[in-house]
Write a protein that binds this DNA or RNA. Sequence first.
RNA 1: GACUCGAUAGCUCAGCUGGUAGAGCAUAACACUUUUAAUGUUAGGGUCCUGGGUUCGAGCCCCAGUCGAGUCACCA
Length: 571
Amino acid sequence: MQLSEQEIQRREALQKLRDLGVEPYPAEGYEVTHYAEDILKNFETKPGDYEQVSLAGRIMSKRIMGKAGFTDLKDHTGRIQLYFNRDEICPDEDKTLYNEVYKKLTDIGDFIGVEGSVFVTRMGEISIAVKRFVFLSKSLRPLPVVKTDADGNIHDAFTDPEQRYRQRYVDLVVNSGVKETFLKRSRIINSMRNYFNAFQYVEVETPILQPIPGGAAARPFITHHNALDIPLYLRIANELYLKRLIVGGFDGVYEFAKDFRNEGMDRTHNPEFTVMEIYVAYKDYIWMMAFTEKMLEQVVKDVNNGDTVVQVGDKSIDFKAPFKRISMLDAIKEHTGHDITGMDEVELRNLCRTLGVETDETMGKAKLIDEIFGEKCEKNYIQPTFITDYPKEMSPLCKRHRSNPDLTERFELMINGKEVANAYTELNDPIDQRERFEEQLKLSEKGDDEAMFIDHDFLRALEYGMPPTSGMGIGIDRLTMLLTNKSSIQEVLFFPQMRPEKVATGPKPADFIALGIAEEWVTHVMKIYPSVEELQALKPTQVHQKLNGYRKKNKLEIAALQLADVESWWS
RNA sequence: GACUCGAUAGCUCAGCUGGUAGAGCAUAACACUUUUAAUGUUAGGGUCCUGGGUUCGAGCCCCAGUCGAGUCACCA
């Protein structure tokens, strides 16, 4: 491994610490009595509470000035300044702890624990006068140093998205605000969970590995189970399992589920993503609309200091319930001026041409309508809006509309021009469901690789009887993007999927050690012979002389090689 | 999948018709007892993403590739 200058220096510092009897990676825990945020917030009103404090965290910056030095410590609540005074740290003659250990052997990134008292510097900054400090963990790699000046300008920000996503741990340490996004994500999920639990609905877990990837139209990931010797799919949805639970007698079930879809990746798509799905018995989609808008209003209030208005880019979005409701056909009428009620496929195709919406031969009636909606209407719904009553062919798991057999009882919730939630009055007629699956099978035979499989066990469950049920799914990643004002899904996933990093293909010391070369020799051997192959292409005598010559020339403090040793590298 | 842009020191970035690489921060050394992006002086640090090509000479020009970002398409 090729170490940079700074990495070598830190390894040397590590050794010096040990030489001085300081353990850089102690085994025991460290007792923390206070946190940075608490001290900064409350010291001035109750200074008496902070005469003796103990904190632990990471060193973020260091400013030494002779016999005193300032260090910024970051714990999980924030940053606070530490004041190290030489004679305070080292009251006796021996000043090593200050001059060596503190001044030279602590680095940005190290974890330390400090004890001391809180005071205010002449510059007016609340700080900790350190009396004792210990190493908790030495950092061997330099962190990027991001500085903020008095006006709040950020200098030398760590901005390269590739590095930020691949090394999220670094991003979290040095970039303020990143952690807040993820804390908010957690609060969004907690708020939703609390809302459901208040209704006594039950949080459940259903299989991620599924023999039939059902519940949505998407290409799945496939894997193989060795003992059963069958293919298994990573779920693309959990809908069919949650409905089985409704069949089994649950009144309401929900799951925060990771789903997996083997499709393209971009700003709004990650191969694995989180969806919350909820199913409630004896309800329909009308009820579900009211349930959903109240839930979202509550979630937004919970994460937004009680406010229902969220700033997203240059738009203000108000989550105050009730949301606007409009049927898909009315939406199209509103934004295109055309009433498509009762139009057949030919008429729709002509309309698409008139409107400049691209079509192709394989598109059926439903797909054409969807295309018009997606092209002409979707982007207009900035404020939360329920789009209702979708064409039947688009929704094979959704119940036929009570007053129009060509439509289904479905809604999607559009916010900021994008779909955030999707819900149905669930289809519970097993005969109808079987027919819909069979239509999907025909699509599949035509080559649609996203058409749904027939799940016979699910049909069997429906045949035992499922109560009228409404279900709703909401994309947690996309909701989080909205509420944190992020335009990329990668900003709301800790570890977004990335292409694997290229591994250095160069030779590894281990390859040479495997030949029997002594460890002390390996780095030198590698300097002369970059690969095992190049070394072994030569004669042992030649290598033997060359290496011993190298040893002499560079005055290496290691024993000369014997020819027999060198010869053994070829065996 | 198509197009556009990017990859140079640990980090952020500069670089010239094509003539062996620069700055700030970080690092090391010295000075300095309350600093605020601390400061001052000095020093070290680079396979200029990879591989080919053109050229006397390539970080720069050409070709191919890798990775990333953006736009579009596809997908929900």
